[in-house]
Simulated scan of single mutants.
Amino acid sequence: MRAPLQLPLEFEAFYLGHQEFFHDYAEAQLGTRRAAEEAIHQAFREILAGWEQLLQEGNLEQRAWAVVRRIVGRRLEAEGRPPAFVINGPIALALRAARDKLKVMQSVSGLYEAIAELPPRQFDVMVLRYILGYPPPRIAWFMGLTERTVDYHCRKAKERLRVQLGFPGPEAKEGKGQ
Score class of each variant (00 low, 15 high):
residue 127 V to D: 01
residue 122 Q to G: 10
residue 59 N to P: 03
residue 116 A to W: 10
residue 126 M to P: 05
residue 142 F to R: 12
residue 145 L to A: 06
residue 100 D to W: 10
residue 163 V to L: 15
residue 65 W to S: 08
residue 74 R to T: 13
residue 61 E to F: 01
residue 84 A to R: 07
residue 86 V to Q: 14
residue 123 F to V: 09
residue 53 Q to T: 15
residue 54 L to D: 10
residue 150 V to K: 01
residue 152 Y to W: 07
residue 112 Y to F: 15
residue 58 G to V: 05
residue 119 P to M: 05
residue 103 K to N: 04
residue 148 R to L: 06
residue 70 R to C: 01
residue 157 A to F: 03
residue 109 S to K: 13
residue 49 A to C: 10
residue 143 M to H: 11
residue 20 E to K: 12
residue 95 L to Q: 00
residue 27 E to P: 00
residue 67 V to R: 05
residue 72 V to S: 02
residue 141 W to C: 00
residue 97 A to P: 02
residue 36 A to L: 07
residue 23 H to Q: 12
residue 47 I to D: 13
residue 155 R to K: 09
residue 30 L to I: 03
residue 63 R to D: 00
residue 68 V to R: 03
residue 27 E to A: 11
residue 18 H to W: 14
residue 88 N to H: 12
residue 161 L to E: 06
residue 48 L to W: 13
residue 47 I to M: 14
residue 95 L to E: 00
residue 121 R to G: 07
residue 69 R to E: 08
residue 134 Y to I: 03
residue 127 V to S: 05
residue 160 R to L: 14
residue 36 A to C: 04
residue 18 H to L: 02
residue 151 D to L: 13
residue 99 R to N: 08
residue 93 L to N: 03
residue 103 K to L: 13
residue 33 R to D: 03
residue 104 V to Q: 15
residue 158 K to R: 15
residue 26 A to L: 02
residue 154 C to Q: 08
residue 77 E to H: 13
residue 42 Q to K: 08
residue 109 S to H: 12
residue 148 R to E: 14
residue 20 E to M: 09
residue 37 E to R: 11
